[in-house]
Write a protein that binds this DNA or RNA. Structure first.
Lengths: 339, 339
DNA sequence: TTGTAGGCGTTATCAG
DNA sequence: CTGATAACGCCTACAA
């Protein structure tokens, strides 16, 4: 099956390639008659422009790249979905790469995408990354670039985030409001800003309510997994028998903790209240149902793409573009685990 | 930042573009000296070949398309992960599109990908699709094509599947082995082959064990959602008070059912045993832990890509390629819900 | 060993 | 209104 080209249509119709091209792109300076003839012929031959040639000419591919720490992940897969859906609306396709929380991979993938000459890059940082050179290189090469959720504050690009500190503050304060006085925090890994901010929010809420911050009540995850929640809950119980609340960096960790507490028949929320973060679907389904912070993944995807689109449009028209940061609202979801 | 081209290197070095090109591609007929000079210059200028131009010349883009019914989905996101990871190994990038179980969208997306001239297409059918024209068109246009999981038996392409019928048979037989005599089946939507095969497996297991098939015990989901599991469980309980086992088309449906049964204090597995399908992570975490069929999503992604790769390689070398079907093994995961 | 020339398929400019 | 011509950046016979 040979591909149809402008040339073939031109030959069949006995006109020039130029005219065919113009007719197909609805240029005003083509007679109705020839335009119709071309359109008809193109249709009957199932002509579609060779996108490789179009890319070369127009210097854009209507394709963007997305680098994400983990594909199998409730929050991130919602972001992906939002990005893909929104991109499709304006005719953009999305290439997805997974950094698996590895800086080394992330660096390679950024390079790969730039060499592919995608029109823009969307990225959420791996746990190992900060304001590293590969990100600066994106800026230097002037490739439209938006970071979301796990960002680096020091990179000068558009960003879509939530206020992790405030949300964590609210979560902790919610626990306090329900009467908790000794609150443990199972926090995320040391490096990502995300985890730091949530920890800070926790600390601030304690301070505001004159609860002494006790750093032995803070447990640090390596990867924020179910098992870590389970194991840390066990550790918390053995090390501190006076705990009455746990704020977990993410729902899956909270569910791990709940699983352990259920196992040893500690009653939630009566003896210990638990709150998570992210609003994973699963939280509604376990016993007791998990209170959490709703983090709008899909919307974050949508906003991220739109910000990128804006920048790509400016680039095309060689207009200046000033990076912006969008902060999306979160809200507390109160369920049984903190009643 | 203007892009570096072969031409610029050539001018800077006072040699021809051809020589530069050859040097970079390690042609044997370039002197060591010029080769080194070129390599060095290319490096210092951060030259990377313009992929648009390369695509146009070589007629391939090292990019494949993936159409998937739903991105936010335990099983499918594992497949995606497998595909991306495997593709990256051979330098392929993956464009992901979501059909949202809509045939109309799927048709558009297939068209989109072909017009983009991706090197190959990976697809899992939407619930509305069968052996439709858009799939035949892929074959007709001779685009390398692999279907996985939700396939159409009538399309002549490579496939990666599990034996749904056998797996469902095993699940049902497992229930029977545990003493169940009245087994309901919450099945998937009417159209997809998947759901049909699982239903058939259920039926065959009953037959083999001389249990009368009662079609009033079969409940049909529209979308295989949590709520459907919940609602059908309620319906089952009111319509048939003698049920002692439920085989659900997928874990999320099973978890919906379990949630209802827990609510009305029907004891699982004592009064009713429940088994799901897919081995979603969540099944390990609820009470009681869910028995299920393990469906290897990641591997399915890996195998699918490799099959596609084979076909793409044959295409490039204009060798013939005969479609193959790979059937991946499944296994029963026995947990508390069928003890 | 190096370079010339033509082409991949489109689009843009400019002259007729 | 139409068409010739020249790019876009790279690759590859074929000449020199």
């Amino acid at each position: 099956m040979k591909d149809i080209t402008l040339k073939e249509i031109a030959i069949k119709l006995g006109i020039s390639i130029t005219t065919v091209s113009k007719a197909l792109k609805n240029y005003p300076d083509v007679s109705e008659k020839t335009k119709n003839a071309v359109l008809e012929m193109a249709k009957s031959l199932h002509f579609t422009p060779n996108s490789f040639a179009v890319n070369l000419r127009t210097r854009e591919s209507k394709t963007i790249g997305l680098i994400i720490p983990e594909v199998v992940h409730h929050f991130f897969s919602n972001v992906i979905k939002g990005i893909i859906a929104e991109a499709e609306k304006s005719g953009y396709l999305v290439i997805i790469l997974q950094s698996s929380e590895s800086k080394e991979l992330e660096i390679k993938q950024v390079d790969l995408l730039m060499n592919k000459r995608v029109d823009g890059i969307l990225l959420s940082l791996s746990n190992e990354s900060n304001d590293d050179d590969h990100l600066k290189e994106i800026i230097r090469r002037d490739v439209p670039f938006v970071m979301f959720d796990k960002i680096s504050k020091l990179i000068n690009c558009s960003k879509v985030i939530i206020n992790d500190q405030k949300a964590a503050f609210n979560a902790t304060e919610h626990l306090i409001g329900k009467g908790c006085k000794r609150i443990a925090h199972i926090r995320g890994p040391v490096n990502p800003q995300n985890a730091i901010d949530r920890f800070l929010g926790y600390k601030k809420a304690l301070e505001k309510h004159n609860i002494l911050f006790d750093k032995s009540l803070v447990y640090t995850c390596k990867g924020s997994e179910f098992e870590e929640g389970y194991d840390f809950a066990k550790q918390i119980i053995t090390e501190h028998n006076d705990i009455d609340g746990i704020f977990c960096v993410t729902d899956i960790v909270a569910i791990g903790a709940i699983n352990y507490l259920n196992e040893i028949n500690i009653s939630i929320p009566k003896q210990i209240k638990v709150i998570g973060f992210s609003n994973w679907f699963m939280g509604q389904v376990i016993t007791p149902k998990l209170s959490t912070i709703d983090q709008p993944g899909y919307d974050m995807g949508v906003e991220s793409f739109n910000l990128l689109l804006e920048e790509m449009n400016c680039r095309r028209e060689t207009k200046p573009f000033t990076p912006r940061t969008i902060e999306l609202p979160t809200k507390i979801i109160e369920r049984e685990s903190t009643l």
